[in-house]
């Protein structure tokens, strides 16, 4: 399986990842790689294995078989903001910076506050922040250790259009600065717009790895939009 990628050696490489939950096959022989600064969108219908794949990449789950090669550190941003609502922005950042064993905790906190533009809310409790700002802190925690790869599980879920726009600006900036971003999403429009490359999962299998234009071309280029092309692509392959 090929795919457009940025220059350089892969910063993450998965080979034949499989995972089952009892009789239920969640992932089957999924392979892919991503390079520095790449934005890889993982899309697929419900139950396709997107979250399972990301949780294996994050080290939360062990694959039944297959291998994963990640030379650098991986940052993980769960779908629901994994934050302590009774702690302030700074306290959350400080806690996770210590848990991540960040060398210069104070510097890392200031860098994240600057990057997320949450400096003025630094002493506010997380519970008082909007969903968008909570998600920014959520992502900031994933970036504390300056990971080579950032994993975002459904990052725009629950955000309004303006908050989504700001989020993707932030993510694009990250990718622009060299961080490889792998994200899962239900929003095909977002995937088409913000993914340098798309990995399509269906019933646990990787059925497509390429750009949105390549997916259009794969179904003859006659579909009116990306969503219609995506549905047709899956239907033609029995999913």
């Amino acid at each position: 399986m090929g795919g457009t990628s940025k220059d350089g050696a892969p910063v993450i490489e998965a080979q034949g990842l499989s995972k089952s939950f009892g009789e239920q096959r969640a992932l089957h022989e999924v392979s892919f790689s991503a390079r520095r600064g790449e934005l890889l969108g993982v899309i697929g219908p419900n139950g396709a294995g997107k979250t399972t794949l990301l949780s294996i990449l994050a080290g939360i789950r062990e694959p039944d078989s297959g291998s994963l090669s990640v030379p650098g550190q991986i940052g993980w941003v769960p779908q629901l903001a994994g934050l302590y609502r009774r702690l302030t922005v700074v306290e959350n950042l400080r806690l996770f910076a210590h848990l991540e064993r960040v060398a210069d905790v104070d510097a890392a906190i200031e860098r994240m506050l600057d990057q997320t533009r949450l400096g003025e809310r630094r002493d506010d409790r997380i519970g008082t922040l909007s969903g968008g700002n909570q998600q920014r802190v959520n992502i900031a925690i994933g970036l504390l250790a300056e990971p080579a790869v950032l994993l975002l599980d459904e990052p725009s879920t629950g955000l309004d259009p303006r908050q989504r726009e700001r989020l993707w600006e932030f993510v694009l900036d990250l990718a622009g600065s060299g961080t490889t971003v792998i994200y899962s999403t239900h929003h095909l429009l977002e995937a088409e717009r913000y993914g340098n490359r798309l990995l399509v999962l269906a019933d646990g299998e990787a059925v497509f790895d390429g750009t949105s234009d390549q997916l259009h071309d794969a179904v003859g280029g006659s579909e009116r939009d990306f969503e219609a092309a995506f549905v047709r692509y899956l239907r033609e392959r029995g999913h």
């Binding site: 993980w76 994994g82 996770f96 925690i141």
Partner: peptide, 13 residues
């Protein structure tokens, strides 16, 4: 409940 479980148990603690 705070959704922090998966984050802190993935190798951090």
């Amino acid at each position: 409940e705070e959704n922090a479980f998966s984050r802190i148990t993935r190798g951090l603690v």
